[in-house]
Amino acid sequence: MADTSRKVEIRDIPTQRLRVRARLVGEDGFPVIFVHGNCSSSAFFESLMKTLPEGFRGIAPDMRGYGHTEEKTINATRGMRDFADDLLALMDTLSLKRAVFVAHSAGAGMVMQLSIDHPERVAGLVVEAPLSPYGFGGTKDADGTPCWADFAGSGGGTANPDFVQRLKNKDRSTESQTSPRNVMNGCYVKPPFRHPDEEKLLDSVLDTHVSDELYPGNFTKSPNWPGVAPGTTGMNNAMAPAWYNTSSFAELKNGPDLLWIRGADDAIVSDTSLFDFGFLGKLGAVPGWPGDAQYPPQPMVSQMRKVMERYAANGGRYREVVLQDTGHSPHLEKTKEFHDLLVPFLQEHAR
């Protein structure tokens, strides 16, 4: 492993779009920007940032709606573009022409959007347990075909209301299956793994800003199963396929090399996700499921792979690595293995 003694500094950075709280390692070197996912913050990357080799400068922002960055509404009708534009504004403020990005879960969606809009700013892209290019929920095959015309079963109304309320209450208990601590330990990672910085990571989860404008967002009622369709504001709507689609990444010319790292036992982003209404309906956990023909489990991994195969056919380069006995957060669960994949990629693309 690399030297783990690098110091992480926390700083507020005013940009043209919003004030960003960020974790920083080093002042010089090629920039590496770490982008967290849903219901977390830059704190999820702190331990990894400490292992960043000399010659690299680490930047991990709290994205809007999370951590201690300024609260501003997420306009979900732009998909992930609010986040992509926030990242671009941060790069401009720091005078960074290009960076390698390391993006986790929903963060991968943010950076795939940035790559589509501004490929010249992305020197390389590491996506960890990435959000499907067709968003989260509401699609039924590897091509991202909608289950319903209104994309019912995705968006702000799909968040578990007890989990949302416990987030809002800053609940640290283990009394319910839907407590933030139990969701983190049971779904963000593969049990029985427990991170040594569990309390700090739980702080990060609980720093999620709960509202209709941020997390999980608003929703609309639907006549289609399961009865809710995407709204127009907030994180879960920004991930909904009504507004979010980065499958055009496959058509990029001279796009960034991409390293895709995922856990074999991911409970969140998979073809059998415990957070997907199609799979939950098939399990009998949500009544009224209309069946496989109308609403099968969303094949999230298969969707990503098909887009990546199209990317490769168009001249792009990607590599998929599956870590066994690993859940949704390989960089936390298999730190050495993740580090050993990351560093050669950084060294190859720091230009």
Rank of each mutant, 00 (worst) to 15 (best):
F219C: 05
V269A: 07
P196G: 03
L283K: 15
R194C: 02
P241F: 08
V269L: 12
H195S: 03
L201I: 02
A285P: 01
L283V: 00
P287D: 11
Y295W: 13
Q298F: 03
L201V: 01
S222W: 11
D207L: 10
R305S: 12
S247N: 12
A267I: 00
T220P: 00
P196N: 07
P297I: 06
P226D: 07
V205N: 09
S273H: 12
N218G: 10
T232D: 14
K306D: 03
G231N: 08
P256R: 12
Y311W: 11
D212K: 12
F279S: 05
W289G: 05
A250K: 11
M304Q: 13
R305C: 02
W260V: 13
G291E: 10
G227S: 08
D265H: 13
Y295P: 02
L201H: 13
K253F: 02
T208F: 06
P290A: 02
H195V: 00
P192S: 08
V269W: 13
G255T: 06
G234A: 05
P299E: 12
N237C: 06
P299V: 04
P230L: 05
P230R: 10
N224M: 03
P287C: 04
A240F: 06
S302E: 14
P256Q: 06
K306T: 04
V269F: 14
N224G: 00
A285W: 12
V210E: 10
G278F: 10
L259Y: 13
S273N: 09
G284F: 11
Q294R: 14
E198D: 10
W243D: 05
P191M: 03
N245E: 05
N237R: 09
A240W: 05
E199C: 01
P216F: 12
D276Y: 13
Q294F: 03
M300W: 11
Y311Q: 06
F277V: 10
T220R: 15
A285S: 12
T233S: 14
R194W: 00
F249D: 07
P296W: 14
P241V: 01
R310K: 15
R262Q: 14
A285T: 01
P196I: 00
P216C: 07
E309G: 01
K200P: 00
G278E: 06
A264M: 06
F279K: 13
D257P: 13
P223W: 04
S302T: 15
G227N: 05
P299H: 12
D197K: 14
H195K: 07
S211Q: 04
D257T: 02
G217M: 05
A238C: 07
N245H: 08
R262S: 09
I268N: 13
P290S: 06
P191K: 10
L274A: 11
F279W: 15
D265F: 05
V205A: 09
H195I: 01
A264S: 15
S204I: 01
E199D: 15
S273G: 08
M300H: 13
D271Q: 10
R194P: 00
L201G: 05
N224A: 04
S273K: 11
V301W: 15
S247W: 09
M235S: 06
P241A: 05
Y244D: 02
M308V: 00
P241K: 12
P287N: 07
E198G: 00
P290G: 03
S211E: 05
F279D: 03
E309S: 11
V307R: 14
P290W: 08
P230C: 06
G263I: 02
S270V: 01
H209K: 15
R305E: 15
K253C: 01
K282D: 02
G217V: 00
